[in-house]
């Protein structure tokens, strides 16, 4: 099938297949899946400038499907999502400004690339260690699987901050938390997302679980809810710059919709710590893909 906007000919089944794969990941883990979809689109011949924008467009549609399913399952905290979104939007802009400063200094790709690797490895390692610890706690201390979190120190300290206004998040089971903590959490994930040029789902999900104390299933659903708006906003800004082939996104979305449903439907079959343990593998895959690209660029520049 010809996609004249991006100027490529790609088998639509391949695109729907990419969508299906990242749809499952998105529905199950609450991530956009850009770190996997991006390289796969690039490999199929989509020009690099179209990869990011088009991926954001398909992410918007996929997140609608997955977030709706999670909402039916009771896994979306709309209040939390909307409040975090305030911080995320501001943070993305700050992150983008930081990128511009680094670009002026030169070697932006290398600096951002290696920062990305460090962040991904840190998130992956922390989540893996914590989830293994939580799974052990379930067996040794007979704790409810839904409540088991390996490291609760940070959550407890954060919930002790009494900076007004204090709000409650009944869907997430949080009786009282400072509004500023939520906005700052969104801001941090936004800065990192804007700085790294990604959706930020893999940052936000652990942040909600370990910092705010949100249950894993609710963190996944709420993250997807937030992605609808952040990716939707990104789609418009990239499309205005001519970086979105909406036809590619629409075809990818046909596969992503069913994948997202399957991923979301599968979550109740897994306890929180098991989901987090499986999730911990994703940042490592992302890190490997980034290292590969960095080495490829470096050797390419030498040649």
């Amino acid at each position: 099938m010809e996609f004249p906007i991006a100027g490529v000919v790609i088998n639509p089944i391949y695109l729907a297949g990419i969508g299906f794969l990242v749809g499952i990941l998105g529905g199950f883990f609450g991530v956009g899946g850009g770190f996997i979809a991006g390289p796969m689109m690039f490999l199929s011949g989509v020009p690099m400038n179209f990869v990011i924008g088009t991926d954001l467009a398909h992410m918007t549609g996929k997140s609608i499907v997955a977030a709706r399913r999670h909402r039916i399952l009771g896994h979306v905290d709309i209040k939390l999502g909307m409040l975090m979104l305030i911080g995320t939007v501001i943070g993305v802009e700050i992150g983008a400004q930081v990128v511009e400063i680094i670009e002026k200094m030169g070697k932006a790709n290398q600096i951002i690339g290696w920062a990305y690797v460090v962040i991904l490895v840190a998130i992956g390692s922390f989540t893996a260690i914590e989830s293994i610890r939580a799974i052990r706690m379930i067996h040794t201390q007979k704790i409810e699987a839904a409540e088991a979190v390996g490291f609760t120190g940070l959550t407890k300290r954060v919930q002790l901050i009494r900076l007004k206004p204090m709000i409650s998040l009944p869907v997430s089971g949080i009786a009282s938390i400072s509004l500023w903590v939520i906005i700052i959490s969104g801001l941090i994930s936004g800065i990192l997302a804007g700085f790294l040029g990604v959706g930020g789902g893999f940052i936000r999900m652990p942040l909600m679980v370990y910092v705010l104390g949100v249950p894993t299933h609710v963190a996944i659903g709420t993250d997807l809810f937030e992605i609808i708006f952040s990716a939707g906003f990104g789609t418009v800004t990239h499309a205005i710059k001519g970086n979105v082939d909406i036809m590619i996104a629409l075809v990818m979305q046909t596969g992503a919709a069913i994948g997202a449903q399957i991923g979301a439907v599968a979550t109740p079959y897994f306890a929180g710590p098991r989901i987090r343990l499986l999730f911990s593998g994703l940042p490592f895959i992302g890190a490997i893909l980034v290292i590969w690209r960095l080495i490829d660029t470096a050797t390419g520049s030498i040649h």
Binding site: I5, A57, H58, T60, G61, K62, S63, I64, V65, R68, R69, I72, G232, T235, V236, T237, A239, I240, K241, G242, V244, I246, A249, L250, Q253, T254, A257, I258, Q261
Partner: peptide, 29 residues
Amino acid sequence: LFHNNMIIYAFVGLALIVAQGALLERITS
């Protein structure tokens, strides 16, 4: 539309993605 008006293209594109998302959600559900 992409070659003639990028702003309208951006919003039409988003509308299409959202509409298709809602439609596919109904079908898959």
